[in-house]
Design a protein around this nucleic acid. Structure first.
Lengths: 250, 250
DNA sequence: CGTCGCATTGATGGAGGTCAAAGAGTGTGG
DNA sequence: CCACACTCTTTGACCTCCATCAATGCGACG
């Protein structure tokens, strides 16, 4: 269902990109004017399915989503979690067939941007092209960190690392209150993000809570002791590249 | 040490990018004319170190390299393996500080491209910008598959998957003879790429060889039975996006 | 011919998986 | 307002895959 939202619906995207790369007012206007359709979708809605032909790019305006793949044995691995303001499949603009699926975690407002519109915008605006490229590079950096997380860290560290990452990303987007944030994920989904089982994630969370590193309140996470979480999660935020990237303008 | 190589040293890059995205003759010429310094470096040479300020991008012209991170506990995770024609750290063009290290596996010829030269080229040439963006998107796709590999596959499948991936990538680059290719990696390095120990990788390789799926000859891998390797590695090449991406020109 | 790095093999242990059941939170319909 | 249904969380018992530790083998190279 299409619906009109107030004002400038794409603002979260523009703010995000402007944090990553310098954009002048004209660039921002052009981004805001990107043709799109707004939709509100429920939790567990598939936005993209593995194997789909790419037709549009989905931009998350509110709510959470995740990308995942299913192995031949039927196991699911979540490869990324997305927060408002992020494109969940920017690759659809240029690659022809989706190599993974995208599903919402919560109810979400999304903007559907036709693939061609994005290509045209990028072709005509080098600064926007650069901003989107930076976005893709940071995405890739996060994937690399996830490879390390599931490949070489113990269960405690994996879970702590993920919780630290989400906390900082939400903070950068202005979506957390202090060290507390909503995390609308089941323990099974958390498990699929860190390559463990839900049973084990449950034990790890329990232990982290008992030791006073975190507190859990329904689907909220409160990081009680950031320093110890950082240590047990072997977390170094450099890979998020949140430091200002705005170098001398093009 | 800088040295002059014959003809058009950047040709492997141009060929690779042209496979990924449409480039006209003018674009190709501009890429070929990218300012750079050629160097020949020995095996185990660090091209980038985690934490370095990005000054240049390294392009592999011959030989192999890999990117890795070290955890707080000192474990290494290899996050990607690179073959000739690939940029090993395109992100250096736009991100300011390296979040991982890059090291050669074998002796290698590399081109060092000043970061600013690449930025300028991209800013002035949308088609080249697009090609490099596609390159980054495919890189990211491979990282995602690696997350799945270390997160959700058993040891046999992990190793088989990696061997399948390298085979196809080398084939696409015209660097394998049939199903045989040189793989200048120790079993410890293989282990760090798939999140296992070298001891276990050794046992897996032995088993794959005993069952007739592969043959090993020094540092060469021969895939004897592609179909069974594909099955045991749960390998689906779609994520490599080797299918022609050349859609209607910009 | 020694030595150095890597591969190979065996023995043992543990982190995390699997299986199964009970508990808790939330929503719904009577 | 309660009963029950459904999903998710929690906990316990047991087991397996892979890590760890420790030798030994072996090929390349000075």
């Amino acid at each position: 269902m299409s619906l009109k939202l107030i004002g400038r619906p794409l603002a979260p995207l523009v703010e995000r990109l402007a944090r990553l790369s310098s954009l002048d007012d004209a660039d921002r206007e052009k981004l805001m004017a990107l043709p799109h359709t707004l939709r509100t979708v429920g939790p567990s809605t598939h936005l993209v399915r593995d194997g789909d032909r790419a037709e549009a790019c989905w931009l998350l305006l509110s709510g959470f989503a995740y990308r995942y793949k299913i192995t031949g044995e039927g196991a699911r691995q979540i490869v990324s979690i997305h927060i408002p303001g992020e494109f969940v499949d920017l690759q659809n603009s240029l690659l022809t067939v989706a190599d993974h699926s995208v599903q919402t975690l919560s109810e979400a407002e999304v903007a559907v941007v036709p693939r061609q519109a994005l290509r045209d915008l990028v072709l005509a605006n080098p600064a926007i092209a650069r901003a989107l490229w930076v976005d893709t590079l940071i995405d890739a950096s996060i994937f690399r960190e996830w490879v390390v997380n599931v490949g070489r860290r113990h269960s405690r560290a994996r879970v702590a690392h993920l919780l630290c990452e989400l906390c900082l990303r939400l903070e950068a987007a202005g979506l957390s209150r202090g060290r507390r944030y909503e995390l609308p994920m089941t323990q099974e989904q958390l498990a699929d993000a860190v390559g463990l089982t839900s049973v084990h994630v449950n034990r790890v969370l329990k232990q982290l809570a008992e030791e006073g590193l975190i507190r859990r309140d329904r689907r909220s996470i409160i990081i009680e002791d950031w320093n110890r979480m950082r240590d047990t999660g072997d977390f170094n935020e450099r890979y998020l590249h949140h430091d200002p990237q705005r170098l001398a303008a093009p």
